[in-house]
């Protein structure tokens, strides 16, 4: 494989991990002024800022690794829908409190396992980003787990609605453990994480918390996919980037 292809793979990989953070981070930022209490609003905004911060570091690195002189803003604000390769789970709408908690829980359980491995990447910069992000997502997992336990083991209504959130979002979890061709090639050099190997641990981790929450793991195993590999998104995605990119599209290069 040529050096150029390796560079392209690395740029794509770093940007794709960043996309996960940016999109779910943006989704969580949509709770600003809408959360059930000031304490929860702060908690969600802290998570959002962590996730968007992770995206910034990964986009910066993708820009540095590539040879087009791209900056983090180019990745966030000037790419089109099909260029984003986040997992579909990151972009599904906030829904109710249960949907938001379950989405964060599924993603954080994955992130915790993923960043633990990324911290051992042979790429020093990805390893450093992994180590820093791991501390943040460990808290996200704690926060979302505690809430899920309370919703599941709370009242009849909170139990019913939390179970519905789990059932609704379950089909978006499979894509997290699929690998693109670039990821597979980078794995040969120990740069990327073998996410297929994380699935068993994720099932165990999620199963434990759902058990504590008196909630059940869905039995259906048909999974949604398409974004990570080909940039095929849910119908909700266009609205996210319209909102997110408006300023840079309307006033190119604007700074404040």
């Amino acid at each position: 494989m040529t050096e150029l292809n390796k560079v392209n793979d690395l740029v794509q990989y770093a940007a794709q991990i960043g996309d996960n953070g940016l999109i779910i981070g943006h989704r969580m930022s949509e709770w600003c002024f809408r959360a059930p209490s000031i304490e929860l609003e702060m908690a969600l905004m802290n998570c959002a800022l962590d996730l968007i911060g992770q995206a910034r570091e990964l986009y910066s690195y993708a820009g540095k690794a590539g040879d087009e002189g791209k900056k983090e803003d180019d990745f966030a604000y000037l790419r089109d829908e099909q260029d984003f390769r986040n997992a579909l789970l990151a972009e599904v709408p906030n829904g109710d409190w249960g949907d938001t908690i379950v989405r964060l829980f599924f993603m954080s359980a994955y992130n915790k396992l993923f960043y633990t491995k990324l911290a051992k990447s042979t790429d020093a910069e990805l390893a450093a980003i992994g180590a820093k992000s791991l501390k943040e997502v460990t808290y996200h997992l704690r926060f979302s787990s505690e809430w899920l336990i309370r919703l599941g083991d709370g009242t009849e209504e909170s139990h019913r609605r939390a179970q519905k959130s789990i059932d609704d979002l379950w089909a978006y979890t499979g894509e997290l453990f699929t690998m693109t061709d670039a990821e597979k090639r980078l794995l040969e050099d120990g740069i990327s994480v073998d996410v297929t190997a994380l699935k068993a641990d994720w099932d165990r981790l999620v199963g434990q918390i759902l058990d504590q929450a008196t909630l059940s793991v869905p039995e259906n195993d048909w999974m949604q996919s398409g974004s990570k590999s080909e940039g095929r998104h849910t119908e909700h995605f266009g609205y996210i980037i319209t909102d997110m990119q408006y300023m840079q599209r309307r006033y190119p290069g604007c700074e404040w």
Binding site: S37, I38, E39, M42, A43, N46, Y139, F143, E146, R150
Partner: peptide, 20 residues
């Protein structure tokens, strides 16, 4: 102070509100 359903959530809320 924070409002919370129980001690564990109070601890997390305190972390999120007062140690940012």
């Amino acid at each position: 102070s924070v409002h919370a359903s129980d001690a564990e959530i109070a601890l997390e809320s305190a972390r999120d509100v007062y140690t940012r």
